[in-house]
Design a protein around this nucleic acid. Structure first.
Lengths: 338, 338
DNA sequence: CCTGGCACTCACGGCTCGCGAGTGCCAGAC
DNA sequence: GTCTGGCACTCGCGAGCCGTGAGTGCCAGG
C-alpha cells in the first residue's frame, strides 16, 4: 500500500503535468508544493510510484508523467469533482434556456460543453427505448403511402415512410391511429411491442397487410441501432492535443465519425454518476490516448441518454467532471419543462 | 498573353505539385513531361509565369508552387472535369440506393463524397424554399399545444411545437388542417406566404389567435436562416493537409463548425455547373488555404440544394470536380425516385 | 526514514558544414 | 528572335558535434 505522502506526490505530479504539459521532476515538485520533504525523498517516492506503474519516464533522465493507471488512481481517490461556481451555473442556465426545440437543446448543449471544457463534446439524443410515447401519428401522403411520426415525452420526433401493400382508406387510417394511440400513449417504448401485438386482428382482411406493415415499421424504429442519434462538436479543440498530434488526431477524428463507436463508448458507462474512462480503458484503439468523461441525463430521476466529452488523457479531471455533471443536470431540467 | 507552351508549363507544374506536394523545379519538369525544350527554356518561362503571379517560390533557390491565381487559370483554361469511370459510377449508385429516408440519403452522400475525394464533404439538405409542399400536418399534443409538421416533395420533414393562446378544438383543428392543405399542397414554399394570408378569416374569433399563431410559425420555418440544414463528414481527411497543419487545420475545423459560414460558402456559388473557389477567393479567412468545390443538385432540372467538398488548394481539381458532379447527379436521381 | 552529496545520463538547442536542387544570366547556335 | 548549354551563385536541409542543465539513482551519515 502506498503511504499518504506518496499519494500526495502522485496528486502533485498529475496537477503539475496537466498544467504544464511537461514531465515533472523532483525538484520542481518540492518547489511548487510544500510537501515538507526534500527532493531526494520525493525521488524515492517517485521510484516507488514508478515500480507500481502509476508514473513513467518518457526517457531516462527526464521527469515523470502519469500513466493511465496513475490517472485512474487520481480520479478515484485523490481528486473530487470540482463544482461549478455560481456565475458559471447561471451562464449554463441562460445558454440553454432559449432553446426552441429538442434539436436546438442538443445543439446548444454541445456548444456549451465544448466551450466549458475546451474539449470535444458528444451529446446523445434522448433514447427512444427509455422514453414514453407522447403521441403516434399516421399521415396519408399518397393512396398507398403513409408516414409514421413518433413523438416522445422528451420532445424527440422520429418519422418513417411506409409503402403499403394495398391502398388504405381514410377511415381505416383514423381507426388505426385511434387504436394505436389509446394503446401506447403515455406508455414506455419498451412496452410497445407487447402492447400492439394483436392490433391487426380487428381489421378487415384487406387492411391487415398494411396494419402489420405499420406495426413492424414501428417496432423497427425501436431497434437499438436505429434509434440512437447523437451530435458532436468542438472538434477544433482537438488541436490542443499536444505537439505530436498529427498521429494522434487522425484516429480520433475517425472514431468520432463512427457513431457506432461513440454510442458504444457512452453506452459502456453504467455508473449513476460521472464516469471516466482513461486511455487504454477505452475499447476502441483510436481512442487509446484519450479520456472520455460521460454521464447520464434525464428529465426525471432516470437517465434517458448520455452526454460527455472526449479529450487528452492529460486533462483537468475535476473541472471537466464538474462541467459535465452540471450541464447534464441543467439539460435534464430543460427537458422536464418542455 | 501567355504562349501556349507557358500554359503547358503551368499545367505541368500544377500536376506535379499536386502529385508530389513538393515545389517543382525546371529540370524535374522536363524529365517528367516531354515538353520538347530544355530546362533553361523552362526556367525562362517560369520566370515569366512568376512575374504574372501564377507561380511563386517558397524561398530562393527552391522550386515553384502554383499560387491561387495559378490554380484559377488551371481550373478555368487548362483542365477539364475528369469523368468517373463506369465502375465508379456503379459504385456510387449502389452506395446510395439502399437509403431508407432523407437523413439516410444525406448521410450516405456525405460518406461517399468524403471517400471518393478523400476530403471533407459537405451536403446541404434540400432547401425548403426551393421545394414544393407535399403535406402539412397539425397534431394536437395537449389541449393548448400543437405540433406542426411540414413534408416536402424531397422527403424532408420539419416539425415545430406551437403553444396556443387558447385551447383549440378537434373540429377546428381538422378544419384548419384541411384548409391549409387544400391551399398549399403541391405549391412551392415561396408561394406559401401569399397563399395563407387570409386563412384566419373564416374562423371564429376565439380560434383566430391560434390560427394566426400557427400561420406565423409556418412562415417562420421558411425564414432563410432557420430552414437550412447541412451535414459534414470526412474531417479525418484534414490530416492529409500538409506537414505544417497544426496552424492550418484549426481555423478550418472552426469554420466547419459554423453552419452559417458553410451555408454562405455554398450559397455563394451561383454557377449552374461545378463551382470552384480557390484559397483567398473564399470570404472566410479561416478557409484561405482551402478550396471549395461545390455544385447544386436537385430532383428535377432545378437545384434544391448544394453539396461539395473542402480541401487544400493543392488538390486534384479535375478528379474532385468529376466526383462532386457525379455524386450530385445520382443524389438528384435518388430524390426524384422517392 | 530522511537528507545532502555526488557521479552519471541524456534530451535539447545551437553550431558548423557539405550536399544538392534550383536559380538567373550570358554567350553562342539555329 | 528564340532556344540552348554552361556557369557561378544561393540557400534550405540534414548530419554530426558539442555544451548545458535538468533530472536521476545511489550511498553514507544524521
Amino acid at each position: 500500500m502506498l503511504s499518504e505522502r506518496r499519494l500526495q506526490v502522485l496528486r502533485a505530479i498529475v496537477q503539475d503535468y496537466v498544467g504544464t504539459e511537461e514531465p515533472v521532476g523532483s525538484k520542481a515538485l518540492t518547489e511548487r508544493h510544500n510537501l515538507g520533504v526534500s527532493p531526494a525523498t520525493v525521488r524515492n517516492d517517485m521510484a516507488a510510484l514508478e515500480d507500481e506503474g502509476f508514473i513513467a519516464q518518457p526517457h531516462t533522465s527526464a521527469g515523470r508523467i502519469p500513466t493511465d493507471k496513475g490517472y485512474r488512481l487520481f480520479v478515484d481517490k485523490l481528486a473530487g469533482v470540482k463544482p461549478m461556481t455560481a456565475p458559471e451555473r447561471r451562464a449554463i442556465q441562460n445558454f440553454l434556456e432559449g432553446a426552441v426545440d429538442l434539436d436546438d437543446v442538443v445543439a446548444r448543449t454541445v456548444r456549451l460543453l465544448a466551450q466549458l471544457t475546451r474539449q470535444v463534446a458528444v451529446v446523445q439524443y434522448p433514447s427512444l427505448t427509455r422514453s414514453t410515447v407522447r403521441h403516434v401519428e399516421l399521415l396519408s401522403l399518397a393512396p398507398a403511402r403513409l408516414m409514421l411520426v413518433l413523438i416522445t415525452d422528451t420532445g424527440r420526433v422520429e418519422q418513417r415512410m411506409i409503402d403499403c401493400p394495398a391502398p388504405f382508406g381514410e377511415a381505416s387510417l383514423a381507426d388505426l391511429r385511434a387504436r394505436l394511440n389509446s394503446r401506447v400513449a403515455g406508455r414506455r417504448f419498451t412496452d410497445v411491442p407487447s402492447l400492439v401485438e394483436d392490433l391487426a386482428e380487428p381489421f378487415e382482411a384487406e387492411d391487415r397487410g398494411t396494419v402489420s406493415t405499420v406495426l413492424s415499421t414501428l417496432l423497427e424504429t425501436l431497434v437499438e441501432e436505429n434509434e440512437e442519434r447523437l451530435m458532436i462538436g468542438g472538434t477544433a479543440n482537438l488541436t490542443r492535443f499536444g505537439h505530436d498530434f498529427p498521429l494522434v488526431i487522425r484516429p480520433v477524428l475517425e472514431a468520432l465519425e463512427e457513431q457506432v463507436v461513440l454510442l458504444k463508448l457512452l453506452g459502456e458507462a453504467k455508473d449513476p454518476g460521472v464516469t471516466v474512462r482513461i486511455g487504454h480503458e477505452n475499447a476502441h484503439e483510436g481512442l487509446n490516448s484519450t479520456s472520455v468523461v460521460s454521464v447520464g441525463y434525464g428529465s426525471g430521476g432516470e437517465a434517458v441518454a448520455k452526454l460527455g466529452v472526449v479529450g487528452p488523457t492529460r486533462m483537468d479531471y475535476p473541472g471537466t467532471m464538474g462541467a459535465v455533471r452540471a450541464v447534464a443536470r441543467y439539460v435534464g431540467q430543460i427537458l422536464a419543462e418542455s
